[in-house]
C-alpha cells in the first residue's frame, strides 16, 4: 500500500516511518508547520528542519503551514493529506501517535472523511520500551524542546542514549512525567536513523530557555555522507 507519513522530524514520526517501510511503501512525508508555538496537534521546535530531513531520507515532502488555531489546524492538515493523495497517490496515512486519543481521533476522522487508511504503529506502546528500541536501532535523536518540571536547559541538545533513558525513567517515577514526552514534556529531533541516506549535521544552534521551558533552535544544518 502507498502511504504518507505525518512527519514532524521527531522520534515518534521517524519510528512510525521506519515501521511503515518494513511492511508498505512510503510514498511521501507530510509536515504541517504551525505558527502557533502551543499547537494542539503539531510538534513545533525545528519543524522547518523537516525539509532537510526529508532530503536526507530521500522521500518527497509535502509541507503546509497553518496559523495553528485549534480546529483550523485540522483543515490545513486535511488539505495537505488531500494534496498527498493527488500528487503521490497514497491510500493511507501513518502517524506516530502513542497514547494521545486527542490526536489520534482527529487524524482518524480526517482519514475517514477522505476514505483512506489510517495506521498508528506505535499505538499504546510502552514508552520506555520505545526509547530503548530507538537507541538499539541506531536512531540519533537529540532533545530540542523541554516543557515540564523538573527539566531545564541542561537537557537541551542531549542525545537520547541509555543513560538519558535511565534519567527519564527516574523522572517518571518521581514526577509521573511521561518518559517519551508524548504529553509535550519533551520534543526531539532525529538527525540520523537507519533509513537516512545522509545524516544531518547541525552547524549552528541557539538555546532559548526560561525555567522549565526551552527550545534548542537549529539555525543552520547540512547533510553529510554516512
Amino acid at each position: 500500500m502507498r502511504l504518507g507519513v505525518l512527519f514532524s522530524g521527531g522520534k515518534d514520526s521517524c519510528y512510525a516511518l521506519y515501521k511503515a517501510q518494513k511492511t508498505d511503501e512510503v510514498a511521501c512525508l507530510i509536515s504541517v508547520i504551525s505558527k502557533n508555538k502551543e499547537s494542539y496537534m503539531f510538534h513545533t521546535p525545528n519543524i522547518s528542519l523537516t525539509k532537510l530531513q526529508a532530503e536526507a531520507i530521500g522521500i518527497p515532502l509535502i509541507q503546509k503551514s497553518t496559523e495553528g488555531r485549534k480546529e483550523d489546524e485540522l483543515k490545513d492538515l486535511k488539505s495537505a493529506i488531500r494534496d498527498a493523495i493527488g500528487t503521490h497517490k497514497i491510500e493511507g496515512i501513518v502517524t506516530g501517535a502513542i497514547e494521545s486519543v486527542y490526536q489520534a481521533k482527529r487524524v482518524q476522522k480526517i482519514c475517514n472523511e477522505l476514505n483512506i487508511w489510517c495506521f498508528n504503529p506505535l499505538w499504546m506502546k510502552d514508552q520506555k520500551e520505545l526509547l530503548h528500541e530507538l537507541v538499539e536501532n541506531g536512531f540519533h535523536i537529540i532533545i530540542t524542546g523541554i516543557f515540564a518540571y523538573p527539566l531545564d536547559e541542561k537537557w537541551l541538545g542531549r542525545k537520547i542514549d541509555e543513560k538519558v533513558i535511565d534519567e527519564l525513567a527516574v523522572l517518571e517515577e518521581k514526577y509521573q512525567m511521561n518518559p517519551a514526552g508524548e504529553g509535550g514534556e519533551i520534543e526531539t529531533t532525529v538527525i540520523d536513523a537507519p533509513f537516512f541516506k545522509k545524516r544531518v549535521e547541525i552547524i549552528e544552534s541557539d538555546i532559548k530557555a526560561e525555567g522549565n521551558s526551552g527550545v534548542l533552535v537549529i539555525k543552520k544544518a547540512k547533510l553529510v555522507s554516512k
Binding site: 502511504l3 511503515a20 511492511t23 495506521f119 498508528n120 504503529p121 499505538w123 499504546m124 506502546k125
Partner: peptide, 8 residues
C-alpha cells in the same frame, strides 16, 4: 498477516 496494523 503481518500488516502495519498488527502493532496497533
Amino acid at each position: 498477516k503481518n500488516s502495519l496494523a498488527f502493532s496497533e
